[in-house]
Design a protein around this nucleic acid. Sequence first.
DNA 1: TTGTACGCGTTATCAT
DNA 2: ATGATAACGCGTACAA
Lengths: 320, 320
Amino acid sequence: MVGIKDIAKMAGVSVSTVSNVINGRKNVGKETRERVLKICEEMGYEPNLIGKSLKSGKTNTIVFNFSDFERTFYLKIIKGINDYLSENGFDLIVCTTSSSKNFMRNNFAGGAIILDKKMDNDFLISVADEQFPIVVMDRIVNKDYIKSVIVENYTVMCDFVQSLINKGYSNFGYIGGIESSLDHQERFQAFTDTLKNNNIPFQRTNYYFGDFTEESGYRAANIITLSNNLPEILVCANDNMAIGAIKALKESNYSVPEDISVTGFDDANAAETYGLTTVTIPRYESGYLAAKELVEMIQGTGNNDIFKISAKIKWRSTVK
Amino acid sequence: MVGIKDIAKMAGVSVSTVSNVINGRKNVGKETRERVLKICEEMGYEPNLIGKSLKSGKTNTIVFNFSDFERTFYLKIIKGINDYLSENGFDLIVCTTSSSKNFMRNNFAGGAIILDKKMDNDFLISVADEQFPIVVMDRIVNKDYIKSVIVENYTVMCDFVQSLINKGYSNFGYIGGIESSLDHQERFQAFTDTLKNNNIPFQRTNYYFGDFTEESGYRAANIITLSNNLPEILVCANDNMAIGAIKALKESNYSVPEDISVTGFDDANAAETYGLTTVTIPRYESGYLAAKELVEMIQGTGNNDIFKISAKIKWRSTVK
DNA sequence: TTGTACGCGTTATCAT
DNA sequence: ATGATAACGCGTACAA
């Protein structure tokens, strides 16, 4: 590995001169500057990030933390983040939780975007400061230098359910889950609130449990077909469960949407294949905006208000 | 940020003693050890990786480089890599090309796994050495300390086509593409070689061009339906094109596989939905094995023979 | 314009 | 058993 020292030796100057040349300072003679640059070129010199960040305490590296390898839309978020950061001269490193913590504690990185729920709030609160701001996605953390970027589930879900009511649906079933994520709580709250505002009853017996996998939606729908009270429409907390439900319903010879309508949430890749009516979350854009908010905090122009991303209803064929 | 120095001050000992405690050396008194550990705990001390690798010149960090955000199976590869590395005490950072280069040039990282084709061979050859071995996926680079991990396309494709011939097919169509990736070259070579070995003619007019997107498969199949020579079976170079072709065929009222059979390659997520007969590539395993090979090179027990991953035929309903 | 000395966090070596 | 110090690669303040 060729370092600043080697260059200095070859150019017959001191390391500080090399450092000055590399960092574009003007206190170097033209002839010396050119000679040093030429040698750097020839030797393929690249500054050592370790030495650099060790000394300066500054860095252009951003950490993105995630861990759910099942959700393919995470790639879209990463792409959004990557695009904004590379447009703005930052390096991105993507890590899972344990590695992320390593890179967040030293001043190796200049900020982080956190998606993984396994990354606990206490840790984030302990490391976030002016020198290391953090953006958290899909959760809310109230602390200086921590900004929350969340999907506006509540509003869109209210709109969605209201639209369904306007279409004439009144007998609703819901497949949710035990998972108490903020996302899901909001979706379900919006669901019940909107029904209540329209004086439409919703009985707890019409709430079915899943775990957000296709398999669990399949099981839930099989149970529903065995009940003597088939809802007109089955609202599912995500697409995977909705698709599982559709499979089960078809196997039991129910037509969708003629006999029963089904909706999802996420607009996963498979949603289009099944013609599933669902809610599109702008994943790429949310990554891009999260990165933008982070960079603004780093540059001192940001704030830590909650940033809400709006979603859109995607009407397809599983609803009449 | 709390460092070894702070701990030393609080415990009233020297930094060396703290270092010795942290690194589990036995030359420390029991009472001192306990006191230091307690303070570390209280202060939330974590060793600084930068200082560590600055001193030792060694690192447990591995770079994984990729950039194609469209291929969702990349997540499976990453998971495979991540699992092996975390089981073996390495940290993984995932970056796109430009950032990757930054982290590969200093001794910040101890090795790299390269998937992105944009990362040119010349660069890889220039940085790979004993201190920084590299695993390349889906390409072959002949150089010490660079190991190639590739999917064994040729053999499985030969088996696949031979099985189809054994089933009685003899009039083949092929949707390939201009992309001259090693992967695709091998698949097509295996296709033509196997036909030739069986004395089955394949005319160039039965080769249709796509660009590996669903859309291009759709267009290609529409052209095929307009020809007066519908093949018995349409072999596609990947699943996306096969699915596009199936959609086009169905829209033209051809039944699959009754009127025409279709095969893909990849076993993408949607393949199961369409009942597509295809070839499964063990993505997770290939990531896991790539990481394993890299770690072995780092530990000096590896070699740079080409590592071939075998794929399996997945028979579904689009073939008779 | 150039060079010297120091500090960043850690570990290894040598001394006490 | 414990401590003092040099070293890693770089940037920078300050001296020459």
